[in-house]
Amino acid sequence: MTLVPEFQYQRVFIEPWTTELGSHGLMALVTFLVGATCGLIGNFLILRRMALMGDAISHSVLPGIATAFLLTGSRGIGAMALGAVGAAFTTHLLIEIISRHSRIKPDAAIGIAFSTLFAAGVVLIAVFADRVDLDQDCVLNGELPMIPLEPSVRIGGLVLGPPPLVRLGCLWVGTVFLLLAFYKELLLSSFDPGLAACLGIPVGRVHHGLMLWLAMAVVASFEAVGAILVIALLILPGATASLLTEKMVPRLVWSLVHAALSAIAGMHLSVALDCSPAGASVVAGAGWFACAWVFSPVGGLIPAWWRRRRASSGGGGTVTGGD
């Protein structure tokens, strides 16, 4: 058995869309929903320079999830919300206590809080391994391959799909809805908190709401992609979009496009290499980021280099002419 399976066009590019649509297609759809939800939120995190808050929350939801499983024995929507709120609250509280009441700087405070909480989560999972329906592999890799095997949710005669798909779908619709409803507040408090406060926008409440929604999104994404890869899905779409355009609405649209493209490319990559689908979609997303980095018409490396070259040769010519 070799490390990289033999490349077959049929298996890699055709079958995921035809015979394997029920498993690979479904995984890609779940990845897209995670990337779309997290990407939309991530745009605002990047604007607010809080990308590492995403890092912190995605690590620190683990004890929340583990405790919720231990207490309720299920991964229902109630346990999930409970875990998310608890984790977000604890992280926030710890960071506040450490950075406000000691000389520790905020960056170290974030690092201390989330890594201790994450360690506590892993310890909970390891010690109560027989009682928690989670293992260390799931924490890192997610359980994307398990999702198509779960029984579908049916409402009336309508088959909606496995529970994680339904959950993430609801979360995505909710995110879009909230974004439309509070777009102005979010935008203004991200770009100019002072002005936003002057105009009567409750900046603090917007911040806490965003953090809470982030925690919800991270917890919902947890079972798909695990605790660490979700950071990539939070940051990569927004970062790629910010290289492509300067306006906010196109940025949001581009980040959705990025999520879709990396879900599809990740699916093909994981089929081709037969590797972890979550990891593959992160690698694919990074690949799209690299493309935007090099080729973006706004500030990409090659267009910028081309423009500099033309400007320097043209500019040099006029200067010599003037002399």
């Binding site: 972890s276 990891g279 593959a280 992160v282 990074a286």
Partner: peptide, 10 residues
């Protein structure tokens, strides 16, 4: 961080 980690997991 997350991209390298993802590549490693792959």
């Amino acid at each position: 961080l997350a991209t390298f980690f993802g590549a490693g997991l792959c």
